[in-house]
């Protein structure tokens, strides 16, 4: 496959939570218009690293990020960068579904509203419908858009959050285990979405499912105890891992 230019570059990134050293010296380039999967055992720092990319770690007082992360060549930890503007460009789906305690419609419409993406109600309706369709949840909620988003099932909530994240048309989408609460049908719908998003965006997905990583991603990074052990083409990682730890994890011996 053709190698796209790097969208996100990280160089010597270290993350500390107080005294805990959660990410150790991670350097990797994430190409544009590609799906990159982060895999690794629980607690190895996948979520932490993902949250560095849209500076969500800023909200955690004890968290300290060092090293360089650039998006399109711009250092996102530069003092002149406004994290609010950054997060408009880098959307995120969180590990735990967190819909707002507002109506389903308002959940999706909130982002476009605050960024002024719709000039009138009709445009907003259109954006909301499109986002819900792409989030593979439109059919289930189209008749109850005014009901609270918190009243949906766990899997529906997660898809609502996906719809919410893509409604603002970010350039990069970070997805932290988006399918962990989904049934196989919804999972395959979300995977289709990811595949489609790849044409325009960079998608970074954290997953515990090897099959999913193999199905949707072109690049895979394997994390272990805070270090990035191996990063490369997904096919390579799964068929011919270079590191013993990667092989052990993929074959189910550590995790």
């Amino acid at each position: 496959m053709t190698q796209n230019r790097a969208k996100i570059r990280t160089e010597g990134v270290n993350v500390h939570y107080g005294a805990t050293h959660a990410i150790k010296d991670v350097t990797l380039d994430i190409p544009d218009k590609t799906v990159t999967a982060f895999i690794g055992p629980s607690g190895c720092g996948k979520s932490t690293f993902l949250r560095c990319i849209n500076r969500m770690n800023d909200t955690i007082d004890v968290c300290r990020v060092t090293g360089i992360i650039t998006i399109d060549g711009e250092d996102i930890y530069d003092r002149r960068i406004d994290p609010v503007q950054l997060r408009r460009k880098v959307g995120m789906v969180f590990q735990k579904p967190n819909p707002f305690p507002k109506s389903i419609y308002d959940n999706v419409a909130y982002g476009p509203k605050i960024h002024g993406l719709a000039r009138n109600r009709a445009e907003l309706d259109e954006i909301v419908e499109k986002a819900l369709r792409r989030g593979a949840i439109w059919d289930e909620v189209k008749d109850r858009l005014s009901e609270p988003g918190t009243g949906l099932s766990g899997g529906q909530q997660q898809r609502l959050c996906i719809a919410r994240a893509i409604a603002t048309e970010p350039e990069i989408l970070l997805m932290d285990e988006p399918c962990s609460a989904l049934d196989p049908i919804a999972t395959s719908q979300v995977e289709e979405l990811i595949y489609e998003l790849k044409n325009n965006y960079s998608v970074v997905i954290v997953t515990h499912s090897m099959q999913q990583a193999a199905r949707v991603s072109q690049k895979t990074a394997f994390f272990h105890l805070g270090t990035m052990v191996e990063y490369g083409e997904t096919d390579e990682i799964f068929t011919n891992p270079r590191d013993e730890r990667t092989e052990n994890y993929i074959t189910g011996r550590i995790g």
């Binding site: 609010v84 997060r87 408009r88 969180f94 982002g111 605050i114 959050c161 603002t168």
Partner: peptide, 16 residues
């Protein structure tokens, strides 16, 4: 108020 609500809002690009 659960922190996840704040994360959700910040995540779609809302200011603090």
């Amino acid at each position: 108020v659960p922190p996840s609500i704040r994360d959700g809002a910040l995540g779609v690009g809302a200011s603090p």
